[in-house]
Design a protein around this nucleic acid. Structure first.
Lengths: 234, 234
DNA sequence: TTTTTATAGTTATATTTTTCACATCTAATG
DNA sequence: CATTAGATGTGAAAAATATAACTATAAAAA
Protein backbone atom coordinates (compact mmCIF):
# COMPACT_ATOMS: atom_id res chain seq x y z
CA UNK A 1 0.00 0.00 0.00
CA UNK A 2 1.24 3.48 -0.76
CA UNK A 3 0.28 6.94 0.38
CA UNK A 4 0.53 9.81 -2.05
CA UNK A 5 -0.15 12.20 0.74
CA UNK A 6 -0.63 10.74 4.15
CA UNK A 7 -4.27 10.97 5.05
CA UNK A 8 -4.47 8.15 7.50
CA UNK A 9 -1.92 6.87 9.95
CA UNK A 10 -1.77 3.53 11.59
CA UNK A 11 -0.53 1.89 14.76
CA UNK A 12 0.21 -1.71 15.43
CA UNK A 13 -1.52 -3.00 18.51
CA UNK A 14 -0.75 -6.63 19.32
CA UNK A 15 0.15 -7.20 15.68
CA UNK A 16 -3.15 -5.83 14.49
CA UNK A 17 -3.03 -2.66 12.48
CA UNK A 18 -5.36 0.16 13.47
CA UNK A 19 -5.96 3.27 11.43
CA UNK A 20 -6.33 6.68 12.92
CA UNK A 21 -7.96 9.43 10.95
CA UNK A 22 -5.38 12.07 10.09
CA UNK A 23 -5.79 15.30 11.80
CA UNK A 24 -4.50 18.73 12.48
CA UNK A 25 -4.24 20.09 15.95
CA UNK A 26 -3.53 23.74 15.76
CA UNK A 27 -4.13 26.68 17.91
CA UNK A 28 -0.68 27.81 18.97
CA UNK A 29 -1.24 31.49 18.65
CA UNK A 30 1.56 33.47 17.11
CA UNK A 31 4.11 34.18 19.82
CA UNK A 32 3.53 37.91 19.63
CA UNK A 33 -0.23 37.62 20.00
CA UNK A 34 0.23 35.29 22.88
CA UNK A 35 2.32 37.95 24.54
CA UNK A 36 -0.33 40.58 23.89
CA UNK A 37 -2.60 38.36 25.96
CA UNK A 38 0.08 38.32 28.62
CA UNK A 39 0.48 42.08 28.58
CA UNK A 40 -3.25 42.51 28.88
CA UNK A 41 -3.40 40.32 31.95
CA UNK A 42 -0.68 42.40 33.53
CA UNK A 43 -2.27 45.66 32.52
CA UNK A 44 -5.60 44.68 33.99
CA UNK A 45 -3.90 43.96 37.26
CA UNK A 46 -1.94 47.20 37.17
CA UNK A 47 -5.10 49.10 36.32
CA UNK A 48 -6.83 47.62 39.34
CA UNK A 49 -3.91 48.91 41.41
CA UNK A 50 -4.49 52.39 40.06
CA UNK A 51 -1.57 52.48 37.63
CA UNK A 52 -2.27 54.97 34.85
CA UNK A 53 0.80 54.71 32.65
CA UNK A 54 3.47 52.17 31.81
CA UNK A 55 6.73 52.17 29.88
CA UNK A 56 7.86 49.43 27.58
CA UNK A 57 10.43 48.28 30.11
CA UNK A 58 7.98 48.48 32.98
CA UNK A 59 5.52 46.25 31.24
CA UNK A 60 8.38 44.11 30.04
CA UNK A 61 9.75 43.38 33.44
CA UNK A 62 6.22 42.91 34.70
CA UNK A 63 5.74 40.11 32.17
CA UNK A 64 9.25 38.77 31.81
CA UNK A 65 9.72 40.13 28.29
CA UNK A 66 12.38 42.53 27.05
CA UNK A 67 11.44 46.15 26.48
CA UNK A 68 12.37 45.92 22.79
CA UNK A 69 10.12 42.95 22.41
CA UNK A 70 7.23 44.81 23.99
CA UNK A 71 7.67 47.71 21.60
CA UNK A 72 8.09 45.37 18.68
CA UNK A 73 4.89 43.57 19.56
CA UNK A 74 2.99 46.82 19.92
CA UNK A 75 4.35 47.98 16.61
CA UNK A 76 3.16 44.78 14.96
CA UNK A 77 -0.40 45.42 16.13
CA UNK A 78 -0.21 49.15 15.46
CA UNK A 79 -0.49 50.07 19.09
CA UNK A 80 0.95 53.53 19.55
CA UNK A 81 2.19 55.21 22.70
CA UNK A 82 3.52 58.60 23.60
CA UNK A 83 7.13 58.96 22.58
CA UNK A 84 8.23 60.37 25.85
CA UNK A 85 5.62 59.40 28.36
CA UNK A 86 5.10 55.70 27.65
CA UNK A 87 1.65 54.23 27.24
CA UNK A 88 -1.65 54.98 28.91
CA UNK A 89 -2.90 51.81 30.56
CA UNK A 90 -6.57 52.29 29.75
CA UNK A 91 -5.80 53.06 26.12
CA UNK A 92 -3.57 50.00 25.84
CA UNK A 93 -6.24 47.73 27.26
CA UNK A 94 -8.77 49.22 24.90
CA UNK A 95 -6.60 48.61 21.88
CA UNK A 96 -6.00 45.05 22.96
CA UNK A 97 -9.71 44.46 23.34
CA UNK A 98 -10.20 45.46 19.74
CA UNK A 99 -7.45 43.10 18.66
CA UNK A 100 -9.33 40.30 20.35
CA UNK A 101 -12.65 41.55 18.95
CA UNK A 102 -13.90 41.50 22.46
CA UNK A 103 -17.51 42.27 22.06
CA UNK A 104 -18.89 41.22 25.39
CA UNK A 105 -18.81 37.98 27.27
CA UNK A 106 -17.86 34.62 25.88
CA UNK A 107 -20.00 31.75 27.02
CA UNK A 108 -18.14 28.52 27.51
CA UNK A 109 -18.89 25.16 29.06
CA UNK A 110 -16.83 22.69 31.04
CA UNK A 111 -17.24 18.96 30.50
CA UNK A 112 -16.21 16.88 33.49
CA UNK A 113 -16.93 18.07 36.99
CA UNK A 114 -14.05 16.29 38.62
CA UNK A 115 -11.11 18.02 40.22
CA UNK A 116 -10.03 20.17 37.35
CA UNK A 117 -13.55 20.83 36.16
CA UNK A 118 -14.52 22.06 39.59
CA UNK A 119 -11.41 24.19 39.87
CA UNK A 120 -12.32 25.92 36.68
CA UNK A 121 -15.94 26.35 37.73
CA UNK A 122 -14.79 28.01 40.93
CA UNK A 123 -11.97 30.00 39.41
CA UNK A 124 -12.82 33.63 39.78
CA UNK A 125 -10.26 35.14 37.49
CA UNK A 126 -12.39 34.45 34.45
CA UNK A 127 -14.94 37.17 35.09
CA UNK A 128 -12.39 39.93 34.59
CA UNK A 129 -11.46 38.36 31.29
CA UNK A 130 -15.07 38.14 30.16
CA UNK A 131 -14.95 34.38 30.15
CA UNK A 132 -18.29 33.12 31.30
CA UNK A 133 -18.77 29.47 32.26
CA UNK A 134 -22.48 28.88 31.74
CA UNK A 135 -22.60 25.20 32.66
CA UNK A 136 -20.64 22.12 33.55
CA UNK A 137 -21.44 18.52 32.64
CA UNK A 138 -20.70 15.14 34.16
CA UNK A 139 -21.83 11.56 33.54
CA UNK A 140 -22.06 10.95 37.24
CA UNK A 141 -25.55 12.13 38.28
CA UNK A 142 -24.45 12.46 41.90
CA UNK A 143 -22.30 15.40 40.84
CA UNK A 144 -25.46 17.36 40.26
CA UNK A 145 -25.89 17.74 43.98
CA UNK A 146 -22.77 19.92 44.09
CA UNK A 147 -23.71 23.32 45.53
CA UNK A 148 -22.11 25.93 43.35
CA UNK A 149 -22.97 28.99 41.32
CA UNK A 150 -22.39 27.10 38.14
CA UNK A 151 -24.86 24.30 37.44
CA UNK A 152 -23.89 20.69 36.80
CA UNK A 153 -25.91 18.91 34.15
CA UNK A 154 -25.92 15.40 32.79
CA UNK A 155 -24.40 14.86 29.39
CA UNK A 156 -27.84 14.61 27.82
CA UNK A 157 -28.46 18.30 28.15
CA UNK A 158 -25.27 19.31 26.42
CA UNK A 159 -26.73 20.09 23.04
CA UNK A 160 -29.57 22.08 24.52
CA UNK A 161 -27.24 24.28 26.58
CA UNK A 162 -24.77 24.78 23.74
CA UNK A 163 -27.57 26.01 21.54
CA UNK A 164 -29.27 28.13 24.15
CA UNK A 165 -26.12 30.02 25.19
CA UNK A 166 -24.51 30.03 21.76
CA UNK A 167 -21.45 28.30 23.14
CA UNK A 168 -18.55 27.91 20.74
CA UNK A 169 -15.74 27.01 23.09
CA UNK A 170 -15.65 24.09 25.53
CA UNK A 171 -13.23 22.83 28.11
CA UNK A 172 -12.58 19.12 28.39
CA UNK A 173 -11.69 18.02 31.91
CA UNK A 174 -12.59 14.34 31.82
CA UNK A 175 -10.38 11.26 32.25
CA UNK A 176 -8.11 10.57 29.27
CA UNK A 177 -9.95 7.41 28.27
CA UNK A 178 -13.14 9.27 27.43
CA UNK A 179 -11.69 12.57 26.29
CA UNK A 180 -11.75 11.76 22.59
CA UNK A 181 -15.33 10.62 22.89
CA UNK A 182 -16.42 13.80 24.58
CA UNK A 183 -14.50 15.76 22.00
CA UNK A 184 -16.31 14.09 19.12
CA UNK A 185 -19.61 14.73 20.81
CA UNK A 186 -18.84 18.40 21.34
CA UNK A 187 -17.83 18.83 17.74
CA UNK A 188 -21.04 17.16 16.65
CA UNK A 189 -22.98 19.70 18.67
CA UNK A 190 -21.27 22.58 16.94
CA UNK A 191 -18.40 23.46 19.27
CA UNK A 192 -15.41 24.74 17.34
CA UNK A 193 -12.90 25.55 20.03
CA UNK A 194 -11.64 23.18 22.71
CA UNK A 195 -9.26 23.54 25.62
CA UNK A 196 -8.25 20.05 26.59
CA UNK A 197 -6.89 19.22 30.02
CA UNK A 198 -6.93 15.47 29.52
CA UNK A 199 -3.45 14.09 28.91
CA UNK A 200 -4.24 13.05 25.37
CA UNK A 201 -3.77 14.85 22.10
CA UNK A 202 -7.26 15.11 20.68
CA UNK A 203 -7.93 14.22 17.09
CA UNK A 204 -10.08 16.72 15.27
CA UNK A 205 -10.58 17.97 11.76
CA UNK A 206 -8.87 21.07 10.46
CA UNK A 207 -11.67 23.45 11.19
CA UNK A 208 -11.66 22.82 14.93
CA UNK A 209 -9.29 24.68 17.23
CA UNK A 210 -7.76 22.59 20.00
CA UNK A 211 -5.45 23.73 22.74
CA UNK A 212 -4.02 20.82 24.67
CA UNK A 213 -2.87 21.78 28.14
CA UNK A 214 -0.84 19.09 29.78
CA UNK A 215 -0.19 19.68 33.44
CA UNK A 216 2.39 16.90 33.71
CA UNK A 217 4.40 18.42 30.90
CA UNK A 218 4.35 21.82 32.54
CA UNK A 219 5.71 20.37 35.73
CA UNK A 220 8.17 18.04 34.08
CA UNK A 221 9.75 20.78 32.06
CA UNK A 222 10.54 22.64 35.24
CA UNK A 223 11.89 19.50 36.87
CA UNK A 224 14.09 19.03 33.87
CA UNK A 225 15.41 22.58 33.86
CA UNK A 226 16.10 22.33 37.57
CA UNK A 227 18.00 19.09 37.08
CA UNK A 228 20.37 20.91 34.76
CA UNK A 229 21.18 23.39 37.55
CA UNK A 230 22.87 26.05 35.53
CA UNK A 231 24.64 23.86 33.03
CA UNK A 232 25.33 23.56 29.32
CA UNK A 233 22.43 23.43 26.85
CA UNK A 234 18.86 24.71 27.35
CA UNK B 1 18.17 60.08 36.60
CA UNK B 2 19.83 57.78 34.12
CA UNK B 3 20.23 54.04 33.76
CA UNK B 4 23.40 52.68 32.23
CA UNK B 5 21.85 49.27 32.06
CA UNK B 6 18.36 48.88 33.37
CA UNK B 7 18.55 47.05 36.67
CA UNK B 8 15.42 48.36 38.23
CA UNK B 9 12.10 49.28 36.67
CA UNK B 10 9.42 51.50 38.05
CA UNK B 11 5.68 51.98 37.90
CA UNK B 12 3.67 55.02 38.70
CA UNK B 13 0.86 54.33 41.15
CA UNK B 14 -1.27 57.36 41.93
CA UNK B 15 1.60 59.62 40.95
CA UNK B 16 3.97 57.86 43.29
CA UNK B 17 6.85 56.01 41.73
CA UNK B 18 7.49 52.44 42.80
CA UNK B 19 10.53 50.43 41.92
CA UNK B 20 10.43 46.78 41.02
CA UNK B 21 13.55 44.69 41.20
CA UNK B 22 14.50 43.58 37.71
CA UNK B 23 14.25 39.92 37.05
CA UNK B 24 14.38 37.12 34.60
CA UNK B 25 11.59 34.62 34.21
CA UNK B 26 12.74 31.80 32.07
CA UNK B 27 11.92 28.19 31.68
CA UNK B 28 10.52 27.92 28.17
CA UNK B 29 12.18 24.73 27.22
CA UNK B 30 13.55 24.58 23.71
CA UNK B 31 10.67 23.73 21.42
CA UNK B 32 12.20 20.42 20.42
CA UNK B 33 12.72 19.28 24.00
CA UNK B 34 9.20 20.28 24.85
CA UNK B 35 8.03 18.04 22.04
CA UNK B 36 10.15 15.18 23.31
CA UNK B 37 8.12 15.48 26.48
CA UNK B 38 5.00 15.35 24.36
CA UNK B 39 6.15 12.28 22.46
CA UNK B 40 6.98 10.54 25.69
CA UNK B 41 3.51 11.12 27.07
CA UNK B 42 2.04 9.66 23.92
CA UNK B 43 4.43 6.73 23.91
CA UNK B 44 3.63 5.85 27.49
CA UNK B 45 -0.03 5.75 26.58
CA UNK B 46 0.61 3.68 23.49
CA UNK B 47 2.81 1.33 25.47
CA UNK B 48 0.02 0.81 27.98
CA UNK B 49 -2.19 -0.13 25.03
CA UNK B 50 0.33 -2.75 24.00
CA UNK B 51 1.80 -0.90 21.05
CA UNK B 52 5.32 -2.14 20.34
CA UNK B 53 6.44 0.00 17.45
CA UNK B 54 5.72 3.40 15.97
CA UNK B 55 6.63 5.29 12.83
CA UNK B 56 7.54 8.93 12.66
CA UNK B 57 4.20 9.76 11.08
CA UNK B 58 2.27 7.62 13.54
CA UNK B 59 3.78 9.40 16.47
CA UNK B 60 3.46 12.66 14.63
CA UNK B 61 -0.23 12.39 14.08
CA UNK B 62 -0.62 11.10 17.60
CA UNK B 63 0.90 14.32 18.90
CA UNK B 64 -0.09 16.80 16.24
CA UNK B 65 3.42 17.20 14.87
CA UNK B 66 4.66 16.59 11.33
CA UNK B 67 6.59 13.39 10.64
CA UNK B 68 9.65 15.34 9.50
CA UNK B 69 9.61 17.29 12.71
CA UNK B 70 9.49 14.11 14.74
CA UNK B 71 12.50 12.71 12.91
CA UNK B 72 14.35 16.00 13.14
CA UNK B 73 13.73 16.13 16.88
CA UNK B 74 14.94 12.57 17.31
CA UNK B 75 17.97 13.36 15.25
CA UNK B 76 18.77 16.35 17.45
CA UNK B 77 18.82 14.13 20.52
CA UNK B 78 20.60 11.30 18.75
CA UNK B 79 17.66 8.97 19.01
CA UNK B 80 17.97 6.36 16.30
CA UNK B 81 15.33 4.11 14.82
CA UNK B 82 15.28 1.29 12.41
CA UNK B 83 15.38 2.59 8.89
CA UNK B 84 12.65 0.36 7.72
CA UNK B 85 10.64 -0.61 10.74
CA UNK B 86 10.23 2.66 12.60
CA UNK B 87 11.00 2.91 16.28
CA UNK B 88 10.56 0.48 19.13
CA UNK B 89 8.35 2.07 21.74
CA UNK B 90 10.21 0.75 24.79
CA UNK B 91 13.56 1.79 23.40
CA UNK B 92 12.26 5.27 22.60
CA UNK B 93 10.90 5.74 26.09
CA UNK B 94 14.19 4.54 27.52
CA UNK B 95 16.19 7.01 25.47
CA UNK B 96 13.90 9.81 26.50
CA UNK B 97 14.31 8.93 30.15
CA UNK B 98 18.03 9.34 29.79
CA UNK B 99 17.56 12.70 28.13
CA UNK B 100 15.59 13.80 31.15
CA UNK B 101 18.12 12.17 33.50
CA UNK B 102 15.22 10.39 35.02
CA UNK B 103 16.73 8.69 37.97
CA UNK B 104 13.73 7.82 40.05
CA UNK B 105 10.93 9.89 41.46
CA UNK B 106 10.86 13.63 41.80
CA UNK B 107 9.44 14.93 45.02
CA UNK B 108 7.45 18.12 44.70
CA UNK B 109 5.14 20.14 46.90
CA UNK B 110 2.00 22.14 46.23
CA UNK B 111 1.39 25.40 48.04
CA UNK B 112 -2.28 26.33 48.28
CA UNK B 113 -4.89 23.68 48.84
CA UNK B 114 -7.70 25.50 47.12
CA UNK B 115 -9.33 24.35 43.93
CA UNK B 116 -6.29 24.01 41.77
CA UNK B 117 -4.10 22.76 44.56
CA UNK B 118 -6.57 20.01 45.34
CA UNK B 119 -6.92 19.10 41.69
CA UNK B 120 -3.23 18.59 41.47
CA UNK B 121 -3.12 16.61 44.72
CA UNK B 122 -5.79 14.29 43.37
CA UNK B 123 -4.48 14.15 39.83
CA UNK B 124 -3.40 10.60 39.20
CA UNK B 125 -1.49 11.07 36.00
CA UNK B 126 1.59 12.17 37.86
CA UNK B 127 2.55 8.74 39.15
CA UNK B 128 3.27 7.42 35.68
CA UNK B 129 5.52 10.40 35.11
CA UNK B 130 7.38 9.83 38.36
CA UNK B 131 6.15 13.10 39.75
CA UNK B 132 5.53 12.61 43.43
CA UNK B 133 3.60 15.20 45.43
CA UNK B 134 4.83 14.71 48.98
CA UNK B 135 2.83 17.44 50.66
CA UNK B 136 0.51 20.38 50.21
CA UNK B 137 0.37 23.55 52.27
CA UNK B 138 -2.29 26.08 53.12
CA UNK B 139 -2.62 29.01 55.49
CA UNK B 140 -6.14 27.99 56.37
CA UNK B 141 -5.80 25.43 59.20
CA UNK B 142 -9.28 24.04 58.47
CA UNK B 143 -7.89 22.68 55.21
CA UNK B 144 -5.93 20.19 57.23
CA UNK B 145 -9.05 18.25 57.89
CA UNK B 146 -9.26 17.34 54.19
CA UNK B 147 -9.23 13.57 53.84
CA UNK B 148 -6.78 12.71 51.11
CA UNK B 149 -3.72 10.63 50.44
CA UNK B 150 -1.59 13.71 50.32
CA UNK B 151 -1.24 15.58 53.60
CA UNK B 152 -2.07 19.23 54.09
CA UNK B 153 0.26 21.16 56.35
CA UNK B 154 0.35 24.71 57.61
CA UNK B 155 2.90 27.01 56.06
CA UNK B 156 5.12 26.75 59.11
CA UNK B 157 6.19 23.24 58.23
CA UNK B 158 7.28 24.10 54.73
CA UNK B 159 11.00 24.32 55.37
CA UNK B 160 11.00 21.08 57.31
CA UNK B 161 9.24 19.14 54.56
CA UNK B 162 11.35 20.65 51.78
CA UNK B 163 14.48 19.56 53.60
CA UNK B 164 13.24 16.14 54.58
CA UNK B 165 12.10 15.13 51.08
CA UNK B 166 14.81 17.03 49.23
CA UNK B 167 12.20 18.95 47.29
CA UNK B 168 13.53 21.21 44.56
CA UNK B 169 10.36 21.97 42.64
CA UNK B 170 7.18 23.51 43.98
CA UNK B 171 3.79 24.37 42.58
CA UNK B 172 2.17 27.65 43.50
CA UNK B 173 -1.62 27.47 43.53
CA UNK B 174 -2.51 30.36 45.81
CA UNK B 175 -4.47 33.55 45.06
CA UNK B 176 -2.58 36.07 42.95
CA UNK B 177 -2.22 38.58 45.75
CA UNK B 178 -0.04 36.29 47.84
CA UNK B 179 1.73 34.38 45.06
CA UNK B 180 4.84 36.54 45.04
CA UNK B 181 5.10 36.23 48.78
CA UNK B 182 4.87 32.47 48.68
CA UNK B 183 7.38 32.43 45.88
CA UNK B 184 9.92 34.43 47.86
CA UNK B 185 9.44 32.13 50.81
CA UNK B 186 9.95 29.03 48.69
CA UNK B 187 13.11 30.42 47.20
CA UNK B 188 14.39 31.24 50.66
CA UNK B 189 13.87 27.63 51.63
CA UNK B 190 15.94 26.41 48.74
CA UNK B 191 13.38 25.67 46.04
CA UNK B 192 14.78 26.33 42.59
CA UNK B 193 11.96 25.35 40.29
CA UNK B 194 8.43 26.75 40.39
CA UNK B 195 5.28 26.07 38.41
CA UNK B 196 3.00 29.00 38.99
CA UNK B 197 -0.74 28.78 38.46
CA UNK B 198 -1.50 32.18 39.95
CA UNK B 199 -2.29 34.74 37.25
CA UNK B 200 0.80 36.80 38.02
CA UNK B 201 4.25 36.72 36.51
CA UNK B 202 6.53 35.93 39.42
CA UNK B 203 9.68 37.90 39.97
CA UNK B 204 12.70 35.77 40.70
CA UNK B 205 16.42 35.95 40.27
CA UNK B 206 18.19 34.38 37.32
CA UNK B 207 18.99 31.10 39.01
CA UNK B 208 15.39 30.16 39.68
CA UNK B 209 13.29 28.42 37.04
CA UNK B 210 9.71 29.61 36.78
CA UNK B 211 6.99 28.30 34.55
CA UNK B 212 3.92 30.50 34.61
CA UNK B 213 0.78 28.65 33.59
CA UNK B 214 -2.12 30.96 33.00
CA UNK B 215 -5.43 29.20 32.57
CA UNK B 216 -7.25 32.31 31.38
CA UNK B 217 -4.69 32.81 28.64
CA UNK B 218 -5.05 29.22 27.50
CA UNK B 219 -8.79 29.62 27.20
CA UNK B 220 -8.67 33.08 25.71
CA UNK B 221 -6.34 32.07 22.97
CA UNK B 222 -8.83 29.46 21.85
CA UNK B 223 -11.69 31.93 22.05
CA UNK B 224 -9.66 34.27 19.90
CA UNK B 225 -8.83 31.64 17.30
CA UNK B 226 -12.47 30.61 17.17
CA UNK B 227 -13.58 34.19 16.67
CA UNK B 228 -11.46 34.35 13.54
CA UNK B 229 -13.36 31.37 12.12
CA UNK B 230 -11.03 30.43 9.36
CA UNK B 231 -9.88 33.86 8.34
CA UNK B 232 -6.70 35.77 7.45
CA UNK B 233 -3.79 35.92 9.90
CA UNK B 234 -2.90 33.47 12.65
C1' DT C 1 12.70 79.46 22.95
C1' DT C 2 16.31 76.27 22.48
C1' DT C 3 18.49 72.28 24.19
C1' DT C 4 18.60 68.06 26.30
C1' DT C 5 17.03 63.54 27.19
C1' DA C 6 14.31 59.49 27.90
C1' DT C 7 11.42 56.85 25.54
C1' DA C 8 8.71 55.21 21.49
C1' DG C 9 9.02 53.37 16.81
C1' DT C 10 11.53 51.08 13.14
C1' DT C 11 14.93 48.97 10.44
C1' DA C 12 18.59 45.70 10.26
C1' DT C 13 20.74 41.65 11.99
C1' DA C 14 21.04 37.34 14.27
C1' DT C 15 19.07 33.28 15.94
C1' DT C 16 15.86 29.71 16.28
C1' DT C 17 12.61 26.76 14.38
C1' DT C 18 10.31 24.50 10.67
C1' DT C 19 9.95 22.66 6.21
C1' DC C 20 11.67 20.55 2.21
C1' DA C 21 14.21 17.49 -0.51
C1' DC C 22 16.83 13.85 -0.97
C1' DA C 23 20.36 10.44 0.27
C1' DT C 24 20.52 6.26 2.97
C1' DC C 25 19.28 2.13 4.83
C1' DT C 26 16.85 -2.27 5.82
C1' DA C 27 13.30 -5.61 5.77
C1' DA C 28 10.53 -7.84 2.71
C1' DT C 29 9.75 -9.76 -1.97
C1' DG C 30 10.29 -12.29 -6.02
C1' DC D 1 20.51 -13.03 -3.85
C1' DA D 2 19.40 -8.97 -6.14
C1' DT D 3 15.65 -5.69 -6.13
C1' DT D 4 12.65 -2.52 -4.27
C1' DA D 5 9.29 -0.33 -1.32
C1' DG D 6 8.92 2.22 2.55
C1' DA D 7 10.90 3.83 6.12
C1' DT D 8 14.72 6.81 8.58
C1' DG D 9 18.38 10.51 8.84
C1' DT D 10 20.17 14.92 7.63
C1' DG D 11 21.79 19.08 5.19
C1' DA D 12 20.09 23.08 3.09
C1' DA D 13 16.46 26.49 2.37
C1' DA D 14 12.73 29.05 4.20
C1' DA D 15 10.05 31.05 7.64
C1' DA D 16 9.35 32.75 12.10
C1' DT D 17 11.06 34.93 16.03
C1' DA D 18 14.12 37.62 18.88
C1' DT D 19 17.77 40.97 19.54
C1' DA D 20 20.24 44.88 18.68
C1' DA D 21 21.04 49.24 16.82
C1' DC D 22 19.43 53.29 15.32
C1' DT D 23 16.06 57.28 14.37
C1' DA D 24 12.33 60.18 15.59
C1' DT D 25 9.70 62.56 18.89
C1' DA D 26 7.77 64.85 22.70
C1' DA D 27 8.35 66.40 27.27
C1' DA D 28 11.13 68.67 30.46
C1' DA D 29 14.88 71.62 31.54
C1' DA D 30 17.79 75.39 30.67
Amino acid sequence: MKFEKIIATCVEINSEIFFIVKINTKCPLKRSLRRILLYRGSLLRLQALGVKRVYSYTLGSETGVSAEQVRKDFSEYHIKGNQRGGYRVDKLIGEMETIFHNNGNHNIIVVGRGNIGSSLANYNNFIQRQINIVATFDIDPSKQRIRSDIPVYTMERMKEIIDRFEVRTAIIAVPDMVAQNVCDQLVKYGIDGIVNFAPVILKVTDDIIVNNVNLSDEIESVIYCVSLTGLEEF
